[in-house]
Design a protein around this nucleic acid. Sequence first.
DNA 1: AATGAATGAGAATTCATTCAT
DNA 2: GATGAATGAATTCTCATTCAT
Lengths: 210, 210, 210, 210
Amino acid sequence: MGETQKRAAILAAASRLFAEKGYGNTPTSEIAREAGVAEGTLYHHFGSKDGIFLTIFDETADGYVAGAESLVREGRPGADTLRDFIGFHFDYLGRHATQFLIILRDFPERISGEKTGPAAFRRKKFSRLTSLLSEILDRGAADGTLRLRHPARDTAEMLRGILYGTTRHKMLGIIDVPLPRLATMITDFCGQALSPTPETCGKRPGGGRR
Amino acid sequence: MGETQKRAAILAAASRLFAEKGYGNTPTSEIAREAGVAEGTLYHHFGSKDGIFLTIFDETADGYVAGAESLVREGRPGADTLRDFIGFHFDYLGRHATQFLIILRDFPERISGEKTGPAAFRRKKFSRLTSLLSEILDRGAADGTLRLRHPARDTAEMLRGILYGTTRHKMLGIIDVPLPRLATMITDFCGQALSPTPETCGKRPGGGRR
Amino acid sequence: MGETQKRAAILAAASRLFAEKGYGNTPTSEIAREAGVAEGTLYHHFGSKDGIFLTIFDETADGYVAGAESLVREGRPGADTLRDFIGFHFDYLGRHATQFLIILRDFPERISGEKTGPAAFRRKKFSRLTSLLSEILDRGAADGTLRLRHPARDTAEMLRGILYGTTRHKMLGIIDVPLPRLATMITDFCGQALSPTPETCGKRPGGGRR
Amino acid sequence: MGETQKRAAILAAASRLFAEKGYGNTPTSEIAREAGVAEGTLYHHFGSKDGIFLTIFDETADGYVAGAESLVREGRPGADTLRDFIGFHFDYLGRHATQFLIILRDFPERISGEKTGPAAFRRKKFSRLTSLLSEILDRGAADGTLRLRHPARDTAEMLRGILYGTTRHKMLGIIDVPLPRLATMITDFCGQALSPTPETCGKRPGGGRR
DNA sequence: AATGAATGAGAATTCATTCAT
DNA sequence: GATGAATGAATTCTCATTCAT
């Protein structure tokens, strides 16, 4: 435990500062000071300033993608899964607000670039989301709970953009709506937009779990 | 003309470089070299590196906001105006792709911060969008062409986030769909989501101009 | 003149310090202080610490190789040219003692490495010496003024090593003999070793210019 | 044995790395990693990074000087002893190539400096070579097997420089000639240069051992 | 003897900005 | 208006060494 103490302090300090001022405006000297360690200790544990960012990124992104994956694997109907997905997204966002803010601020700046290597590997984590959304839409089209007016893949890309944009604006304070209500609003919005039958406009068919 | 020539060369070089590498990764020395002027000349014309960014920002943002304003002022029905708004957004985006990329990359990094002063002034330019969207939604609710399930202001904030996110992902290559089709998809998506009557689900009422 | 002043001061300070303490033990901060300029000025003029070294290297090496080349191009008999070569070497050394010391200390550390690029380009400057020596030996073998017991190329490599080693030890104070006498000693030594006829051992045939 | 094992592993790793990348470019962390020990262990055994270098230096230099000393003590004629000396030098070099490379790269950087203390003590080890060569030359002048055209001490210094330079260029790949042939070439070269009688130019007097 | 986390004093380099010409 | 040499504060990163366990 003692050996992990400083490492954790560094991550905590870096998370706070990155979220507050942005990656580029946070000197390593300040991270060290806030964490109460020597500057060298940062490099002992993370190798570079980028290494700190990527550790935060990985921990947050891995949990997020894993949660989304398991949710899709449950095999519930398309519309329900989509609703669950959006719910999960904003729930996870609420529980990892600081880290999300960091990633939203500095991704893809920190992650873009080379076509291969660790950066590309990390980009793929999020591109997994498009695949998952695409799968959900396909499922919904097949089981009749969703109606697609455009190819599933394209719609999935659009949905990912929608989630990204509303999330970012929420985290940056451009959207004032409280998180739970925002989640509901977007769930409703997407539900309406992809609703399969005129009759069910505005109503949810069957009893969704959530 | 000679004096304006260099100014224009600087803006052109800076636009290209900011879009390509980001504001933070573009040294003023490189802007000067690419523009074929001395570094000091940058400061004669723009006062600071930030001044260059803000000039680009202002020119793009002002045109955008002005276009949106005039569009709303036309006074057409809510649903039509919303459709026009989205169409205008992606149209303008296509015509100012480089500048949008710059703003997407470095806003709000460059613009955030102080509660007052020039930064706050610039933030307000975009917050005007929320007001315009809100006005459109109110009008649509009043004239019966849109159906709101949540307060207009909140929905407007959400819509602005949706436009932001899809735009950003398109500009960064995360969305592959061609720009005109993306515009159509989002128009459809929002149209469905805010459609006033069950019967018209999936159909567009009346003949929109676009 | 005024614009070159600081550049020259930097080269002078760097030369002195590199010779005195070695490249690796000379911080750029000290070069700047000794030259009476800001540290940034070093980078304005030379781009990097290595750039300073390479500037010194190039100026010295180019003059040296050019002098050697022109000497060989005079077309005098092999033995005379070899004598001239050695004489020129130690003469040039005496006139550029500081720079030679630097190169001797930190070449090939600074210059070795990549197979191509600027480093390889610089290594080739000195490898030209082997070619020149080889040419001299061939000429001497052809005109009968030198007697080779081994291939000219191999002997040339050896001679270059001999010059290098004695030069280095002289510059580092391991050899105490004054420079002009050292030059004579080595001229005699090589002359004897490559002397073509038993009768002339210890005597020089004809009247060499030098 | 277990305690000696790690010590040996450290020396082996350090030798390889120093030879490959140079002392200054080899972090202690890498030595530890390559040796499979903790970084602290280096300091238990050698006290400092310099201590590792000096241990390698001492072991190599001591063996070399001892070999040279015993060779001179055999009391053979001057010319034969000189021939033996050169032969021994390149033989020893071949058997300790890695260590020689290290010393060639980083001596006198590591060893120069103070006039007294351990550094000076180590420098003296090699200055012993000059004395030995001087003794050989004196002996050859006395027994008529060598002919000196300059003071023995000065010639000895020159010879040491010759051996150093050819050795260094061989180790750095500047000389391509295989080691045994290089030894023969230098033996011949020096033999000719110091040959006592005109008649024997080009021939070796008597039967040298080697 | 062995470990390896922690240190902190440097080191090279970057770059927006200034100002004398 | 235009120049570009000069600046120096700030920043990331290196690494030999220490010390509690």
